[in-house]
């Protein structure tokens, strides 16, 4: 049972609920709270997910272009460029670490 199920004619329940909801139901934290959380999470080693690129990016990367658009020689280079565009963090890391 929750307070949603209470009989609406009981004055005490109705008034307690109204009193709490009138004061607190619309309460929102200030935006700075999230900024503080994010900053601390990043400080603790958290990271952002490749600037909003989702799982769909892998499908784009794996898709084969139609033949007239890209020649066989240009294909790997084109893929690397697309990879750099979609996953800049990972690509930069690989470039620096492995000298790609």
């Amino acid at each position: 049972m929750s307070s949603r199920d209470l009989s609406s004619f009981d004055p005490l329940d109705r008034m307690v609920k109204e009193a709490l909801q009138a004061r607190f139901a619309g309460a929102e934290p200030s935006p700075r709270v999230w900024r503080r959380i994010r900053r601390e999470a990043v400080r603790q080693g958290g990271r952002h997910r490749s600037r909003g690129i989702g799982d769909w990016a892998w499908f784009l990367l794996m898709a084969r272009p139609t033949a007239p658009l890209v020649g066989r020689d240009e294909f790997p280079l084109g893929r690397f460029g697309l990879g750099m565009f979609l996953f800049p963090d990972a690509a930069t890391l690989m470039t620096l670490r492995f000298g790609w």
Binding site: E28, W34, R38, A41, R47, H48, R49
Partner: peptide, 15 residues
């Protein structure tokens, strides 16, 4: 360690 996931959960439950 995905901070964006934390952001999603924050939006969902902060209020």
């Amino acid at each position: 360690g995905d901070v964006d996931a934390l952001g999603e959960l924050y939006k969902r439950y902060k209020t």
